[in-house]
Amino acid sequence: MNPKNTAFLFDLNGTIIDDMAYHAKAWYHILAEDLGADLTFEEVKQEMYGKNAEVLVRIFGEDHFDTDEIEKLSTKKESYYQHAYKPHLELINGLQEFLAQAAAANVKMAIASAAITDNIDFVIDNLNIRHYFQALVSADDVSTSKPNPETFLKAAEKLNADPADCIVFEDAPKGVEAAQNAGMRCVVITTAHPKEDFAQYDNVIGYIADYTEPYIKNFFEQQ
């Protein structure tokens, strides 16, 4: 690995912070309790990928809500999430050290996430890690969510990095598929899915439970 050319692209939820349970609870509040969707908590967890608007359209149909209603529901969902998660907000174990190691090696880094900008700001400012990232790409910056490669390709472009030199850190199959579609290698963190869920992707170069594992602690020597 040549640090001068390499770029690290991090998904946010489940990759930088382990917060997916709080998103699931917030979506369940909105979808099942507030809007009356006939969904179990497990079914909500399966549907909560992509942009907030995409989730609502996927469940209720294209014309069920107008743009203003979608915006209000999205804001309400994120308010539920941030209020519940803030007391528990912390980086995944070992990530602080890994970010510092990458920064010391002059590796370019970006967050490339389906989260809205406000949630990215909520995380990186409360955890004081904004200085590690030279670019941010959120749901607000793309027209199509993962597995479309737009999120990762825009992040690479912002970093002036070749996709072939980018290593993506992801926790979700659709994110790994997006990285593959972008021509990027991927390290999978198994916070939300077991290794078996990624068997169909040929761009995965390693699996970690967190950033303290020997694979990631010795990452620069191995590449």
Score class of each variant (00 low, 15 high):
30 I>P: 08
32 A>N: 14
17 I>M: 05
10 F>T: 00
15 T>P: 03
45 K>Q: 13
37 A>N: 04
9 L>G: 07
14 G>E: 01
33 E>F: 08
29 H>W: 13
36 G>N: 09
42 E>Y: 06
10 F>E: 03
5 N>F: 11
26 A>Y: 07
44 V>S: 01
17 I>W: 06
43 E>C: 06
5 N>M: 08
25 K>P: 01
47 E>W: 06
43 E>P: 09
25 K>G: 12
43 E>V: 08
37 A>P: 11
32 A>F: 10
4 K>G: 11
39 L>G: 10
39 L>F: 11
22 Y>G: 03
24 A>K: 10
20 M>L: 10
32 A>W: 05
34 D>A: 14
28 Y>T: 07
26 A>K: 01
13 N>W: 07
11 D>R: 01
9 L>E: 01
19 D>Q: 04
6 T>K: 09
39 L>R: 04
20 M>D: 09
44 V>N: 02
17 I>D: 04
12 L>I: 08
14 G>Q: 01
21 A>Y: 11
44 V>A: 00
30 I>N: 00
4 K>V: 07
26 A>R: 00
42 E>L: 07
23 H>E: 01
23 H>S: 01
24 A>N: 13
24 A>S: 14
12 L>A: 09
38 D>G: 03
38 D>P: 07
49 Y>E: 01
25 K>W: 10
8 F>I: 00
48 M>A: 02
5 N>Q: 14
43 E>L: 02
42 E>C: 00
19 D>N: 12
31 L>Y: 12
31 L>R: 04
8 F>A: 09
42 E>A: 15
18 D>H: 12
31 L>I: 09
10 F>S: 02
37 A>D: 06
34 D>K: 15
50 G>C: 03
6 T>A: 13
25 K>F: 11
33 E>R: 14
30 I>G: 04
49 Y>M: 06
25 K>Q: 14
17 I>E: 04
42 E>N: 14
3 P>I: 04
29 H>E: 14
16 I>T: 13
47 E>V: 00
34 D>V: 12
35 L>Q: 07
49 Y>F: 15
38 D>R: 13
12 L>G: 08
16 I>D: 00
31 L>E: 07
10 F>H: 03
41 F>P: 03
36 G>Y: 12
9 L>S: 06
10 F>V: 03
11 D>F: 09
18 D>K: 05
42 E>V: 10
41 F>K: 02
12 L>Y: 08
22 Y>Q: 01
40 T>V: 07
7 A>M: 02
13 N>A: 10
30 I>M: 12
9 L>I: 08
43 E>Q: 15
8 F>C: 06
5 N>I: 02
6 T>S: 11
7 A>R: 00
9 L>D: 04
41 F>W: 10
44 V>F: 05
4 K>T: 13
18 D>A: 09
36 G>R: 04
36 G>P: 12
29 H>P: 00
11 D>N: 09
49 Y>D: 04
11 D>I: 03
23 H>I: 00
38 D>M: 07
38 D>K: 15
36 G>T: 09
13 N>T: 07
13 N>I: 02
20 M>G: 01
38 D>E: 14
48 M>I: 15
21 A>H: 13
44 V>K: 00
30 I>E: 09
16 I>R: 00
5 N>W: 04
15 T>Q: 02
